[in-house]
């Protein structure tokens, strides 16, 4: 059928246009970070000066280290606690389980503006105040539901008979978990960990409300810089961030199929 083939080609062209819409601004930003003109004039004159000058920007470097540190600690804590909770939700039947699972939804669904300002008020009220500790507390809480959802999805594919078989062969609870369950859910745990890292590393809104001038993360520092005015240096650091976060998600996709199991 000729019409069908034409329509299919229209569809393919449409997808290409959508991809152009999604990627063009990012590509342009990346190109401009290599442009010598600070006013983004064309034609492009190749330079890596803006990247070089990033190394001189102590404030930005300090914020970058903070971001990395917080993301790594968030990943470790939320992956361990989240996997434990997923195991419990998978293994045991008890009253209120549905409620506990439903509790994971609000942290994901409530706009970060609300969560962030609420954290600011509460942490101030109980004396934690603002700063890196507060940011870490917040990031782990934001990452936990994602980890639990991802690990639970992996556990759905796990056959409980395997645990029972191990147990009937004389393995104790620790051995069952360590030798049977954990190896099976590992891809889920790794995907959850990568998610947690991305949630923390890319987090802006919550960090923004919880940071103070000396104790801040990279996205917050970038936002401050953007509000002061556009400079090619921001393009350079933004390009680095976008490459890092996309690489992370590509890595995650290797472990976790977004489109469901095929």
């Amino acid at each position: 059928m000729a019409t069908t083939r034409i329509l299919e080609w229209v569809g393919r062209i449409y997808i290409v246009l959508l991809l152009a819409f999604l990627y063009l601004p990012i590509i342009i930003m990346a190109l401009m970070s290599f442009n010598a003109s600070p006013f983004y004039q064309l034609p492009l004159e190749w330079t890596t000066d803006w990247y070089a000058s990033l190394w001189q920007n102590d404030q930005l470097i300090a914020a970058t280290w903070n971001s990395i540190e917080i993301a790594v600690i968030t990943t470790i804590i939320s992956t361990v606690l989240g996997s434990m909770a997923s195991l419990a939700l998978y293994r045991y039947e008890f009253r209120g389980k549905k409620f506990l699972q439903a509790l994971l939804f609000p942290p994901i669904a409530i706009p970060w503006l609300i969560t962030g300002t609420a954290m600011l008020i509460f942490f101030f009220g109980i004396g934690i105040g603002r700063g890196l500790v507060a940011i870490l507390l917040g990031h782990v809480a934001l990452a936990l539901p994602y980890v639990i959802v991802v690990v639970s999805a992996r556990l759905q594919t796990f056959a409980p008979e395997l645990e029972e078989a191990a147990r009937s062969l004389g393995a104790n609870q620790w051995q069952v978990t360590n030798r049977v369950t954990l190896p099976w859910i590992m891809p889920g745990v790794i995907a959850g960990g990568l998610f947690a890292f991305a949630v923390s590393f890319d987090q802006f809104v919550v960090s923004y409300f919880l940071s103070t001038p000396g104790q801040t993360t990279l996205p917050v520092e970038i936002y401050a810089a953007i509000r002061k005015g556009f400079t090619p240096e921001i393009n350079a650091v933004s390009t680095i961030i976008i490459v890092v976060s996309m690489a992370l998600m590509l890595l995650t996709a290797r472990f976790f199929k977004f489109g469901g199991e095929k």
């Binding site: 606690l81 195991l87 045991y92 300002t117 609420a118 008020i121 936990l144």
Partner: peptide
């Protein structure tokens, strides 16, 4: 039963309580 599940559940949900649910209530 909830009892054997508690040690596994408590850390995660305590964290969520301190960093999300209590702040929302405080707000």
């Amino acid at each position: 039963g909830l009892k054997p599940a508690l040690p596994l559940l408590l850390p995660a949900y305590l964290w969520l309580t301190v960093a999300i649910f209590l702040p929302l209530s405080a707000m």
